[in-house]
Each structure stands twice: as structure tokens, then as C-alpha cells.
Amino acid sequence: MTTFNFEEAKRTKITALFVSLLYILIISSLIGLKTENWIIVLAFNACIWLSQSSRKFILAFSIFIFFAIIYDLMKVYPNYRVNPVDIGGIYNFEKSLFGFNYHGAIVTPNEFFALHHTTFFDLLGGFFYLNWIPLPVAFAFWLYFKNKKQFLHFSLTFLFVNLIGFCIYYLHPAAPPWYVAKYGFDFIQHTPGDTAGLGRFDKLLHANIFGSLYSRNSNVFAAMPSLHCAYPLIAFFYAFKSNVKSMKWYFGIVMVGIWITAIYSGHHYVVDAIMGISCAGAGILIFQFVLLRIRAVKTFLSAYEQLIT
């Protein structure tokens, strides 16, 4: 049973206010404040001040808030300013590995699906793709209330895999398949996000679900690795590790569905998906068999678990 520590709570509240003010100043000066930035700040501080339980909850989920902030800050210095964007190279590489003859021409799987798609698979694929963030976040909620240790392992692995992926984005910026289909092989700076094949899902439902999501895209030249394909694998692994029988099969189906939809919708090449899956696998292995054996990491995790319990 934990006891309430007034001085510790006071220090946490003061620290939260300082961090929030620093966040507002940085975001406003670099990219400008938006509604979602204020929502993050208000929700964070409300949980910090409301009660001991809400304070522990938001300190735990600060891992995901940190991820969201880093993703947002990628707008400050896009990866295409660091290295040239791979447009034609990755397209030709995809075609050399997975291209096939169709009516006398070699086409990529994306190009084939752009010509051959059905209402059923448009709806099914849209459903799968909508799970790419809600699924790991919902699983994190479940783990938080059931197993704090596994929650931290899952959440920090999620963050670690994202950091690996972000580094690759800057080392090797790459255009998605829909970019080639829409703009060709010329680099066009400040290209807006695009729903590609997922736009068919929006039209079928007469909604702007994916249109709204992709309008907030930090950088369209970040197709490889596909982190859409990485996230469900992380959730699937920790569902097995936590022995959650009711979830792991659902996670497995959604995982494969997202992998296929990433290609079917024209958002990723097969090589993007393979790299995303490899990125998740590498992140899981490094976290489980390297980082967890480092004494400083174990001490940090123990202290973090005590803080949120």
C-alpha cells in the first residue's frame, strides 16, 4: 500500500507547471501553438493537480506524450533538409524485388492494387488501419491497470522503436508509393499529406476520418520504415508475453491486416513494411536482451514503477 507524500506531490506539481511553460514556449517559437498543444498541456496539468491516482496515471502515460511531442517537433527541421529524398531509387528497388508482369508491363503491388480494389477490402483495410495507434494505446491502458511492470516495458519499447524509426527517417528520407503515382519522381518540398487509397474508405462512409489524420502529417517523406507496421507487432509481442489470451489473436489478425493494408492503400511499399517489421523486431530484442540487463536501466524502471504504483 502506498502512502501520500505531500512534499513529493508539491514538487511534482511545480515541476509539471515548469515543464508545461517550457513546452508552450518551445512549441510557440518553433512551429506555433495549435489546439492539440493546449489540450495536451491542460490535460496533463489537470491530471497532475486533480488527485494522486490521476497524477500517477499521467506520469505513466507521459511516455506517449513524449512520443507525440517528438513527432510534432519533426516539423521544425524536416528530414528532407538533412538528406536527399529517395523517390525513384526505392520505387525501382521495390519493382526489382516484388514487381511482376501485368499486361506486358512490370508493376509494383501498389500499382496493381490501385487498379484492382473492391468496396469490401476498402472498408476492411480502413478498419484495420484505424487501429494503428488506438490498438497500442488501448493495450497500454489495459496493462497500466493490470501489470505496471509490463506496461513500462511495452510503453518504453514503443518509444524506443519510434526513436529508431525517426533516426532512419533522417538518415534515409523516402517517398511513399502514392507520391510517385501523384507527382512522379521530382522532389516537391512541402508536399501535403495524402489519404491515397484510404480516401476510398472516407468516401464510402461519407466522412473525413483519414483526411483529417493525414492533414496533420509531420512529413510525407518518412515512408521507410513503416511504423504503421511496427506498432501492432510490439502490441502482439507483449500480448503474448503478458499471456493475454483474449487479446493476442485479435492483435495478430489486426497486425497482418495493417501490414496488407499499408501496401493495398498505396501508403507503403513492401520494402517499407519489411523494414518497419524489422525495426520493431530489433527494438524488442535490444530492449529485452540488452537494455533490461543494464543496471542503470533496471534502477530507473524500478523507480518509475514505484512512482506510478
Rank of each mutant, 00 (worst) to 15 (best):
L22R: 05
I286W: 00
Y169D: 09
P78F: 02
V256C: 03
A296G: 00
R81T: 13
Y264C: 12
I70N: 02
T3P: 01
D202T: 07
Y71N: 04
E111L: 04
Y170A: 11
S155K: 04
G211Q: 06
S218V: 12
Y304W: 04
S242H: 01
D202R: 02
M74H: 09
V256P: 03
G99R: 11
E7S: 10
K148L: 04
F300L: 14
A239V: 03
A196K: 01
Y231T: 14
F121R: 08
L59N: 11
K75G: 13
S265M: 09
P176S: 08
F151H: 00
G125I: 15
T12P: 01
P78I: 07
Q189V: 13
K182A: 14
L115K: 12
F100R: 05
I106M: 05
S302P: 00
L17I: 14
R295F: 07
R295N: 08
F61P: 01
I308Y: 02
I168D: 12
I65V: 11
I87H: 12
N208D: 15
L291C: 09
F64P: 04
I26M: 07
G276A: 05
G165P: 08
P136D: 12
M74Q: 14
E305Q: 10
S302L: 10
Y77I: 09
S278I: 15
F145N: 10
I284V: 09
K34I: 03
K75I: 14
G126A: 11
S242R: 08
N83H: 15
I31L: 13
N208R: 11
I24W: 00
T3H: 10
V180P: 00
Y80G: 08
D194E: 06
G211Y: 00
L17F: 08
I308E: 12
K203P: 06
Y23K: 04
I277A: 14
G211W: 00
I26Q: 04
A196I: 05
F93N: 07
N217W: 03
K148V: 03
S246G: 12
P176V: 10
R11I: 04
F210I: 12
L233H: 06
D194Q: 02
V76E: 08
F287G: 01
R200N: 13
Y183N: 15
I258E: 05
N101G: 09
T118S: 15
A68K: 02
R200H: 14
R293F: 13
F4W: 05
H103T: 13
V161M: 08
L171K: 11
G281F: 10
L205V: 02
T3C: 00
I133P: 02
F120D: 02
F128Y: 09
F141R: 11
K146S: 09
E111H: 01
Y304E: 02
K13D: 01
F210E: 11
I65L: 11
